[in-house]
Design a protein around this nucleic acid. Structure first.
Lengths: 339, 339
DNA sequence: CTGAAAGCGCTTACAG
DNA sequence: CTGAAAGCGCTTACAG
């Protein structure tokens, strides 16, 4: 009998079921080489004892643990949490767990810090969120350290096994199409910050769409922001002071778009009657400001799930996906321009 | 020489420094019983080799691992992330890592699921966020399983070693005081949902403050919401239809307060001229809607840090704290009532 | 289909 | 202040 005051081990299970611990191990690991009888018998004892394999011991023997890491420096809390939910969807009912690690993109020791983290925790693999996911040196580091990784990005930054990507460029095109269909011709862009791939993709998508429609983008209709609320407000303020004022603004994320709403209000312009605004992300703020914002939503949770599956179950059909369609969420911040 | 293609182990360090592995272990664990010479010598070899102790092996031998768990079902993404940052502040430079585990409060198998999670991961301890932190059965479960825990709450739900608490009741009083000082007499309450301790505390604080000021709270000035945006909108709509319309609203969280902003707009009432609104949480939305919202902010990150320290370094002075002052953040959603 | 032996990389008494 | 032996709870070749 196992000592009743301790959690049972593989030895207890082996003794009680009258087999070797190796056989118990085979049951745990679902080995094919096992008679149905033995399996049933051992499983009964496992259930009776409430036995749970010790993951530390398994990790030691297997030379890898069951931890997935989430590396992020994402400013959008909801995106991070949605991604986490997706990862959890993938690892639920498995022995994997999710370890989170915020990183500071601006720290000069960032790469060393992450190296130490990976060495120390010996993760099974890491999931990397944008914008830090755009750092190729980081991906290289994972490779060197033998740590699996999957990046989330707004373009195909890596090969299919290592990325879950949205189609930002195409989606921004659709947003522009939507504005043009309603009659807008003077459409301004609030860009994201230098060095963000997503900012680049969204700008490219915007410019390409405008060109496809034969529409000019005056230099004064392009202002750069930082992806933060205040920068969107400042950028929109400048746009609204332009000699030839745009009738619509595409902001490269929702936070900046929300800032643009404020700027419009301060300039006594009504959204959408005097100014149409489209954002990007479909974060909670988009639905909760007034008027509710038309924006581009992307399936963050599904991307998190697929990213995790690429690491822990690469043969799962859901792990094959690497392109994830975003979609335009139409709300009330867009209307035809004033006649 | 260690095989250069493998990560070095304690044996490599022992061999190269000419001591036993036990001595290396003493260096790793900062044992006091060590000559300065030996320590220096071993540390040099460790640095030279880039040796990092294998946490799985340590975990197995020590019978506990170095993982902190974060259990939450918090609807406010920013709060969860801020708390995570605080925990990370505490475990930075340690060998601990943070494992996250969202839970579904409404699942009938929740407690069993968590039990399995704790059994499986054998966490060093868990941090529990509200509202699930208010579940005493969960705390009891941790106790039974020998898993350390610290709850975050809006009241002293547990003893000092097991909680980091805000002072919601007192803070709501201050919010009410602020409104009364400006001349408001007819102040309405949008309550949080039944069964949330925070909702209870905030309501109690509200009622006590009103009573202290000798102000009546008409039944029609109290409406319950769900902590979600839409419920705040619906609740405020009802409040604004009251025969005797309130001049100010205290909403038990920012999301519902934001909903109240919308309701006011739909009723053609200007905030703050026609209606003052105060929220609770100081979440990003509070600063990003128009007008910027006066609200109650609490030091979530500091609470996360203290909670983690209670688990991993109970003797640290910062681990002693259990009460965390919130503060009123004055912005532009409050003004004196119309004459 | 099943088992005895050795090993994963560390720590814990126990000596000295 | 330091070390040899045994053990933490698993798995991996290797036999049979």
């Amino acid at each position: 009998m196992p000592k009743s005051n301790k959690t049972p081990t593989i030895n207890d299970v082996a003794r009680l079921s009258g087999v070797s611990k190796k056989t118990v191990s085979r049951v745990i690991n679902r080995s094919a080489l096992l008679s149905e009888d033995t399996r049933t018998k051992v499983e009964a004892v496992i259930a009776q004892l409430g036995y749970v394999p010790n993951p530390q011991a398994r990790a030691l023997a297997l030379r890898h643990n069951f931890l997935l890491g989430l590396l992020h420096d994402n400013p959008n809390a909801q995106t991070v949490l949605n991604f986490q939910e997706g990862v959890l969807d993938a690892i639920r009912e498995t022995e994997f767990a999710l370890v989170v690690r915020p990183v500071d993109r601006h720290s000069p020791t960032m790469l060393d810090d992450i190296r130490r983290f990976l060495e120390q925790q010996r993760l099974y693999g890491v999931l990397i969120l944008p914008p830090i996911s755009e750092n190729d040196a980081l991906a290289q580091l994972c490779l060197e350290m033998g740590c699996g990784y999957v990046r989330m990005g707004s373009a195909m930054l890596d090969d299919e096994d290592h990325i879950v990507a949205s189609n930002d460029r195409e989606m921004v095109s659709q947003a522009v199409d939507h504005l043009v269909e309603l009659g807008h011709r003077k459409i301004a862009l609030i860009e994201g910050p230098e060095g963000f791939r997503s900012a680049f993709e969204r700008r490219e998508g915007f410019m390409a769409a405008m060109q496809a429609h034969g529409l000019a983008v005056l230099p004064e209709w392009r202002v750069q922001g930082t992806y933060r609320f205040e920068s969107g407000m400042a950028a929109a303020t400048r746009l609204l002071e332009a000699a030839d004022r745009p009738t619509a603004i595409f902001a490269s994320n929702d936070e900046m778009a929300a800032g643009a709403f404020h700027a419009a209000r301060l300039s006594d312009l009504k959204v959408p009657d005097d100014l149409s605004i489209i954002g990007f992300d479909d974060s909670p703020i988009a639905a909760h400001i007034w008027p509710p914002m038309t924006t581009v939503g992307w399936p963050v949770r599904e991307m998190g799930r697929a990213a995790a599956l690429k690491l822990i179950a690469p043969d799962d059909p859901a792990a094959q996906a690497f392109r994830f369609p975003a979609k335009l969420v139409k709300r009330l911040s867009v209307a035809p321009p004033r006649a």
